[in-house]
């Protein structure tokens, strides 16, 4: 009998983070595309802005990895 609890928990942690990041990035991305189309000089700033929500998926990943590795 495998203990499914840990992988499922890890999956949820990672998956929700990823969904959250995806939602945020879709909005920021399309707004960023709009801004860059209008003012090309803001490209660098937009890259940073799009990258900001990535924190969520990364934290999700950290939690998932910790669950998997530390609770083994």
């Amino acid at each position: 009998m495998v203990d499914w609890g840990i992988p499922i928990g890890a999956g949820i942690a990672f998956g929700l983070g990823a969904i959250g990041t995806g939602l945020a990035q879709s909005k920021i991305g399309s707004a960023g595309a709009g801004t860059v189309a209008e003012r090309p000089e803001t490209f660098g700033l937009m890259v940073v802005l799009v990258a900001i929500p990535e924190t969520m998926v990364i934290l999700g990943f950290v939690v998932a990895a910790m669950l998997m590795i530390m609770l083994k």
């Binding site: 990535e54 924190t55 934290l59 950290v62 990895a65």
Partner: peptide, 9 residues
Amino acid sequence: ARIMAIGMA
């Protein structure tokens, strides 16, 4: 923490 996390990934 992302330094560690991305490395991990």
